[in-house]
């Protein structure tokens, strides 16, 4: 640390302040007297629970579909690969509200897939917890894909070749050689996915709507309160910050520094 030039340290300090000052300004405004009452209210607890469930579901979906996608993009050669990658990573740059609207056109009751689904099963995805899970997954899974794909591209292919030459089949090689090599990137990607899903607002409100106890996640509750009871919004924001910091620190200790 002390070997770094002074100008670099100064710029880094500016970087820290850039992120720390707004957070500090938020904490200064926290209504400490009413904090417990606001945070322990039924609406807050159900919003917190919904955010935890939906973001956990996004992490599970990232493992199930995000990692296979990353492996394919990193190792397979096929036509239109650049286009596939662009489509998959699009939610990273798309305004979340646009993503939510696109989901509505696809999976809503009158949507491309949503309409036949509704006619066949009577299932309506928007305005339900499924809508929340889909919305937060849509915007957050790309973080796992991009992180894992990058690590796979940088990993040493000779280990895989050696494993195959020693008789391991493709699945065994993937399971015991390829993925363990990039496990820090997998954990980092899943952590990013979780964090993005936990704080998701735009796609959720556009696709799943907002109903306390059903589709109102913590960020939605914060937004609604920001229009009305601002001290409640600030208290909820503090709750989000605390939960996020605890999870991020725990994940770092557990996963990024494996013993």
């Amino acid at each position: 640390m002390s070997r770094q030039p002074l100008w670099l340290k100064s710029l880094a300090v500016v970087g820290v302040l850039f992120f720390a000052v707004p957070l500090l300004a938020l904490v200064v405004r926290v209504p400490w007297g009413d904090l417990l009452e606001i945070i322990s209210s039924e609406e807050t607890l159900s919003a917190l629970w919904l955010s935890i469930v939906a973001s956990a579901a996004a992490v599970v979906l990232s493992v199930v579909i995000g990692i296979p996608l990353a492996v394919l993009l990193a190792s397979a050669e096929f036509r239109g690969k650049a286009l596939v990658r662009a489509i998959v990573l699009l939610p990273l740059v798309l305004p979340p509200v646009v993503g939510g609207a696109a989901l509505l056109f696809a999976l809503g009751r009158t949507g491309l897939i949503g309409e036949p689904l509704y006619d066949l099963t009577g299932l309506v995805l928007p305005f339900s917890i499924w809508g929340v899970v889909i919305a937060v997954s849509f915007v957050s899974i790309p973080f796992t894909v991009i992180t894992v794909e990058g690590a796979l591209r940088g990993s040493d292919k000779r280990f895989e070749v050696a494993a195959r030459s020693l008789g391991a089949d493709a699945w065994k090689t993937l399971r015991h050689v390829t993925l363990p090599m990039v496990s820090p990137a997998i954990y980092a990607g899943l952590t990013l996915t979780w964090a993005r899903a936990f704080g998701e607002f735009g796609a959720t409100v556009a696709f799943a709507g907002s109903l306390a106890g059903r589709t109102e996640t913590l960020p939605l509750a914060i937004f609604v309160n920001l229009q009305g009871d601002r001290s409640a919004a600030i208290a909820l924001s503090l709750l989000m910050v605390v939960v996020s910091v605890v999870v991020l620190v725990l994940m770092r200790d557990r996963w990024l520094n494996p013993r």
């Binding site: 609207a101 509505l104 056109f105 809503g108 009751r109 009158t110 928007p126 305005f127 409100v205 556009a206 709507g209 907002s210 109903l211 306390a212 589709t215 937004f223 609604v224 229009q227």
Partner: peptide, 20 residues
């Protein structure tokens, strides 16, 4: 029994217009 409380009237109207 409302199914959603939208943050503003335009968001609500969009969902009505689309038949959601």
């Amino acid at each position: 029994e409302f199914d959603t409380f939208e943050p503003n009237v335009k968001a609500l109207l969009t969902k009505v217009e689309n038949g959601e």
